[in-house]
């Protein structure tokens, strides 16, 4: 289910958890037939390119600036982006930078994207400032659409406080995302919950499927973080 669509674009407010969601979609993809495109020109740390080595070993192609540019804080994109968007043999997931600012990077590819057909998802975390209410979520969606020249069809609830996430936080996020989807005629696609927290949270009452997220982008002191921080 989560892997529907041959081109999935993941957008959202800054810090909503887009990258973790996009990385999880890619990780669940078929080896040799999945590409993860890192279009994040906003964040200097915690980017999907940090997982490039681990993912390429598993047959998942991460398209992002290469060499020392990979660690640079300049708004540059990989020259391989357009080729990836045209490659209909592969399933392509695009991890877009946060806010309308990050979504602007999509605009120059909007023609190619429309030709191919796409599904664009808005990731919603109601525990981020300026993303807490239905109105704020819809305003964010409208501004991302204006900046990218593309249309958001689906909403993904991803309300969380990392390891401190409670059932109440998940349900609050699902309620806001669900209501925003209803008011705007979009599809309320899924509700993300960190896999490790699922046993503790029981079964949250939400109006969409639960998608268990595996935490890939770890802080340096979290076990298993090694690859991302030894570069």
């Amino acid at each position: 289910m989560e892997n529907e669509g041959s081109l999935v674009i993941v957008t959202g407010c800054y810090g909503s958890g887009k990258t973790e969601y996009a990385v999880n979609l890619a990780a669940a993809g078929e080896p040799g037939r999945t590409m993860l495109v890192d279009l994040d020109v906003v964040n200097p740390y915690f980017r999907s390119r940090d997982l490039r080595d681990e993912f390429s070993a598993r047959g998942i192609d991460v398209v992002a600036p290469e060499g020392s540019f990979s660690h640079a804080d300049v708004p540059m994109l990989s020259r391989r982006v357009k080729g990836a968007l045209r490659n209909t043999e592969k399933r392509v997931i695009i991890d877009v930078g946060g806010d309308p600012m990050g979504a602007r990077a999509l605009a120059r590819f909007s023609g190619t994207i429309k030709e191919r057909g796409y599904r664009m998802r808005l990731v919603v975390n109601t525990r981020r400032p300026q993303n807490r209410t239905v109105e704020e979520v819809l305003d964010m969606a409208a501004r991302i659409e204006a900046a990218s020249g593309l249309v958001i069809q689906e909403l993904v609830a991803n309300s969380h406080l990392m390891e401190e996430t409670t059932r109440e936080v998940v349900e609050e996020g699902a309620a806001v995302a669900g209501e925003a989807a209803r008011q705007s005629g979009r599809d309320f696609f899924t509700v993300c919950v960190l896999e490790d927290l699922l046993p503790r949270l029981g079964e949250p009452r939400v109006q969409a499927r639960i998608f268990a997220l595996k935490k890939h982008l770890r802080k340096p002191w979290e076990p298993g973080s090694g690859k991302a921080w030894r570069i």
Binding site: G15, N125, R127, R128, P129, H160, L161, M162, E164
Partner: peptide
């Protein structure tokens, strides 16, 4: 207030 998620720079 509510617990929210922030970057250190924002917080």
């Amino acid at each position: 207030g509510d617990k929210i998620l922030m970057k250190g720079n924002e917080a």
